[in-house]
Design a protein around this nucleic acid. Structure first.
Length: 482
RNA sequence: UCCCGAAUAGCUCAGCCGGUUAGAGCAUCUGACUGUUAAUCAGAGGGUCGCUGGUUCGAGCCCAGCUUCGGGAGCCA
């Protein structure tokens, strides 16, 4: 029996007139003769040539779009134009039929909206083949980047009992019978009777546990699923998404920003170096897509140019206070074109402001630092008040064109008294986070970390615009299909 | 959750001022052709016009509510 060869290898083959075996799924069957066969090993198809004169009618009828077939034949230089090699079939076996009346994928362009409804089949399109190859490459590169730098990959828990982190609404994890829950004497649901003996949730972040490990290993990262039960209906939020969270001891905000920028550039370079075919395809796809848009909405750079631009330029560093000054003096603010006008220091930046800074003013990735303490989390390190007595924290957000916030991080507050004071101010119960505070009690040290939304990175690198298209089976409000 | 828009054949869409039997391209099926490249040519089948109610002699079209989808905002990664 001949060993099955992958189409990717056959398309690159130089030795002809040899017997080969290929298996794959039919993309199209033209002229009763030419099968475009794809096995997922690459985006390209191999052409299988069938001699319909000596092939039974019943077999030819079963070579339909989507069918899985096994082909044995001779690899030859193509007799026709349009492809270099083809397989002259000597025998074809149908492995799995595909009813053409019911198979939803046609050899034509489908809308992303339609493909989202058939997410179980959309992997079979070139677009999603490319997206998920890039996603794979980026995930692999994340591990390679941190491994090369001696980071330890930590698996932080997915089920957590702490609800104090404040990153968002949480999904409850329980085995309690919702029809008949155990009650306390006051009539409330008694979580002492629950599986863990307490109320538990799906994690919204591995950061707090990551800090514990960083205070022993020095440098760690997490890369796992994260859950937010926010009723977010946008092109850049998911209820279940993957997050990368490095945490580094003895590192300040500068080190943190450097790590983040190095990582993003490393990942983008890895994709460019390893997913050339896929990015070329996505680049062309995007150009086609843009043709239907009015001139002013089209992007100035193509996808690949944009990625290279990102690699070859330093990210813009900017404090919140400097950003406010730029925004205050900006044309849209002066002409009152912003929906939310900038007048006071202390207000949170709206996405229109972030977009202005990134896409109009600097036209490159921006790292915003030193936000007002009042709009940031309790664990961020408190800076000394400025000459006007304004309080800020050592936070940094990285903003990307078209995506917005892709990284959020900070130097952590390592001083126990400052941390607990802030927790009291925000009504965060200290007793629940006793283990977290222990890091500040026993050998506390400066440390920093950040979170990178993996899907947002995949969005940027693939040039896709809806986050639901860069994760296999997106989870969002009112949708958990597949 | 809020604002805006959309929902008509398997897919992408047209459907005029509310008026006879709701159309096109692609896909599918049948036949022809047989070195095609989203093959081509000829023909055929395919519709509870998202759902519920209302206005009207008459509703795909107007109104209300609901559902779902898309874009934007908020929450954030």
């Amino acid at each position: 029996m001949i060993k099955r060869e992958k189409i990717k290898e056959l398309l690159a083959a130089t030795a002809f007139n040899r017997e080969v075996s290929v298996m794959g799924w039919v993309r199209t069957f033209r002229n009763n003769q030419f099968i475009a066969l794809n096995d997922g090993s690459c985006m390209g198809n191999i052409q299988v040539v069938v001699n319909f004169n000596n092939t039974p009618e019943e077999l030819l009828k079963r070579i339909t779009t989507g069918a899985a077939i096994s082909v044995k034949g001779t690899l030859i230089e193509s007799l026709g134009k349009g492809q270099r090699v083809e397989v002259k079939a000597s025998s074809i076996e149908i492995l799995g039929d595909s009813d053409p009346e019911r198979y939803p994928l046609q050899p034509k362009k489908h809308s992303l909206e339609f493909l989202r409804e058939i997410a179980h089949l959309r992997f079979r399109t070139n677009t999603f083949n490319a997206i998920f190859k890039v996603r794979h490459a980026l995930a692999f590169a994340v591990h390679q980047f941190y491994n090369e730098r001696g980071f330890v990959y930590m698996h932080t828990p997915i089920i957590t009992a702490s609800d104090a982190e404040g990153a968002g609404e949480m999904f409850r994890v329980t085995t309690i019978d919702p029809e008949n829950p155990p009650r306390t004497t006051e009539g409330k649901i008694d979580y002492n009777e629950d599986f863990f003996g307490r109320s538990t949730n799906l994690t919204v972040s591995g950061q707090l546990e990551g800090e514990l490990a960083a205070m022993a290993f020095g440098q760690i990262y997490t890369f796992g699923p994260t859950f937010r039960a926010e009723n977010s209906n946008t092109t850049r939020h998911l209820a279940e998404f993957w997050m990368i969270e490095p945490e580094v001891a003895f590192a300040d905000l500068e080190d943190n920003m450097k790590l983040a920028e190095d990582m993003l550039k490393y990942l983008i370079r890895y994709a460019l170096d390893n997913c050339g075919e896929e990015l070329e395809f996505l680049n062309t796809r995007l150009l086609e897509e843009e043709k239907s848009k009015p001139q002013h909405e089209r992007s100035e750079l193509s996808l690949i140019d944009k990625l290279n631009f990102c690699l070859n330029n330093d990210f813009e560093h900017l404090t919140y206070t400097e950003a406010i000054a730029i925004l205050k003096a900006s044309k849209p603010n002066q002409k009152k074109q912003f929906k939310y006008l900038i007048d006071e220091w202390g207000a949170d930046l709206q996405s229109e402001h972030e977009r202005y800074l990134v896409e109009k003013h600097f036209k490159k990735p921006v790292i915003l630092t030193d936000y007002p303490a009042d709009i940031k989390s309790f664990y961020m390190r408190q800076n000394e008040p400025d000459d006007q007595g304004r309080k800020t924290v050592a936070a940094m957000d990285i903003l990307f064109p078209g995506i917005g916030e892709i990284v959020g991080g900070s130097q952590r507050e390592e001083r126990l008294d400052r941390l607990t004071q802030r927790m009291r101010d925000l009504n965060i119960p200290e007793e629940e986070l006793w283990w977290f505070l222990d890091t500040r009690r026993f050998g506390s040290a400066p440390h920093s970390g950040f979170g990178l939304g993996f899907e947002r990175l995949v969005l940027f690198v693939t040039g896709m615009t809806n986050i639901r298209d860069v994760i296999a089976f997106p989870r969002f409000p009112r949708n958990a299909e597949f």
